[in-house]
């Protein structure tokens, strides 16, 4: 390859990386902004909005083990077709599972947990 081609390749890699990073940053900012908009205080949340809020919590915390698509990870099961009730989901999120999953009662209050449960139910 000629020096001009190498220079072009470097410019191409830098431009691509910059544009992709900017795109993903914009997506994250949008999601974060939308998550804040759906927080309680402004208006009561519809079921759909509750699930949207739950999704932002899920992506922030649960996705680290259960995967971004809730399809499961190396050490955590899939949450896509849970056969347990909402109350049971709430209990697991709040109390955790000994030796397997931590409790999130300090991180998420009852309303936040309800949002996560709403999101998990929407995955069915």
């Amino acid at each position: 390859m000629t020096p001009l081609e190498i220079k072009g390749a470097m410019a191409a890699v830098i431009t691509s990386a910059f544009i992709l990073i900017a795109t993903f940053t914009a997506g994250a900012i949008y999601q974060n902004h939308r998550g804040r908009e759906t927080e309680p205080g402004n208006k009561p949340l519809a079921a759909e909005d509750l699930a949207v809020k739950g999704r932002s919590f899920f992506l922030r915390t649960c996705a680290q083990c259960h995967g971004r698509d809730a399809g499961g990870g190396e050490d955590a099961p899939s949450l896509l077709k849970l056969q347990i009730s909402g109350a049971h989901m709430t209990l697991v999120i709040q109390s955790g599972i000994k030796g397997e999953m931590p409790s999130f009662s300090k991180k998420y209050n009852a309303q936040d947990t309800a949002a996560i449960v709403a999101y998990l139910k929407s995955l069915h």
Binding site: T2, L4, E5, K7, G8, A9, A11, A12, V13, T15, S16, A17, I19, L20, T23
Partner: peptide
């Protein structure tokens, strides 16, 4: 998207050379 942007930039720099 990444490839498209990269290829376009490369082509802009190199043209027909």
């Amino acid at each position: 998207f990444g490839l498209l942007m990269g290829l376009a930039v490369w082509r802009l720099v190199v043209r027909d050379a």
